[in-house]
Amino acid sequence: MTTLRFNKPYQVLSQFTDETGRKALADFIDMPGIYAAGRLDRDSEGLLLLTSDGLLQNRISHPDYKLYKIYWVQVDGQISDQALQKLREGVQLKDGMTLPAQVEEIPPPASLWPRDPPIRERAEIPTSWIQIEICEGRNRQVRRMTAAVGFPTLRLIRYAIGPISLEGLNPGEYAEVEEQPLWEFFPQQKTRRSRGSNKPGPTARDRGSNRGREKRARR
């Protein structure tokens, strides 16, 4: 089985081909039998997981399994403490109340790459960055959440899915990762991956546990 982490660039589809000729995964990854586990909107950037394991693909993408994801979000305006608290408690969207989220204001991420094209900034209005961690998978949820508290999203980057992050990957790059840290998030499936071994798996919340074992591959 093969599982990859991929830093999806802006304006790239989370599918391998597109009939209209828009950029898609096949422009960056040439590997048969591997499929995206979940999706990331075309106008969003960052971490996308792909795997040849159908069961793991279902676990990652299905909302019932509550796999937490971390996003870096640049919003229009200087976000207020009141807006941050509303996001933490949950906000009312058209499809219902969101679950409480872990949210904090952050400085612009040090490892951030320039977006092409860049966002439109207005000289008289500042922007700010937040980090938000959620486990729901509603359509365009983060963008709708920030808009609901009065701070529209300008740029959205998914930084982590469970224990896997995009650290060290430039846009358009991918690397192979071990599956066990992901399976640690699904206790009912642990025996499937540990059969034949009495060694405990890596700690699920240790996001750096897989870095030394990754095999970097570039386009």
Rank of each mutant, 00 (worst) to 15 (best):
W183R: 00
A204R: 14
G54W: 01
P202E: 10
S61A: 15
L156E: 01
G137Q: 00
P109A: 07
N210S: 12
T203H: 14
H62P: 00
L13I: 05
R192T: 12
E178K: 13
D64Y: 03
G137H: 09
R39E: 08
Q57C: 11
I29F: 12
E89A: 15
A123L: 12
S111L: 08
P200N: 09
L93Y: 05
G90D: 08
H62V: 04
Q180C: 10
H62F: 04
R158W: 11
R122N: 10
A160P: 10
G21V: 09
E19N: 08
A217H: 14
R158G: 11
E167S: 09
E45Q: 14
A36Y: 06
R155A: 09
G46V: 08
Q188M: 10
I34H: 08
L4T: 06
F151V: 02
T3I: 11
R122L: 14
I70Q: 13
V103Y: 01
T203A: 15
L55N: 03
L156I: 10
R144E: 02
G201A: 09
A37P: 02
R5T: 04
P114R: 08
L50V: 08
D76K: 14
R195Y: 14
T51L: 08
V91T: 13
K199P: 06
R42I: 13
F185C: 13
A24D: 03
A101G: 03
E167F: 06
P126L: 12
C135K: 08
E133L: 01
I29G: 04
P117T: 02
P114H: 07
Q78H: 10
Q189M: 13
L40N: 05
P108A: 14
Q85L: 03
L47N: 04
G212P: 06
D41R: 12
E184S: 12
V75G: 07
D27A: 07
L13G: 03
I161T: 13
Q188H: 13
I125E: 13
I29D: 08
I130A: 03
T17H: 14
G150E: 09
L156F: 01
N58R: 00
D64G: 02
E124W: 00
A110W: 01
S80N: 08
L169A: 04
R115Y: 03
S197V: 06
D43G: 03
E45D: 04
R213S: 09
D41Q: 08
D30N: 15
I134M: 10
L48E: 11
E184D: 00
R219F: 09
Y65L: 05
R138A: 07
R213E: 05
L112Y: 10
A24H: 10
T153W: 02
N7V: 02
S111D: 15
A26T: 02
G137D: 06
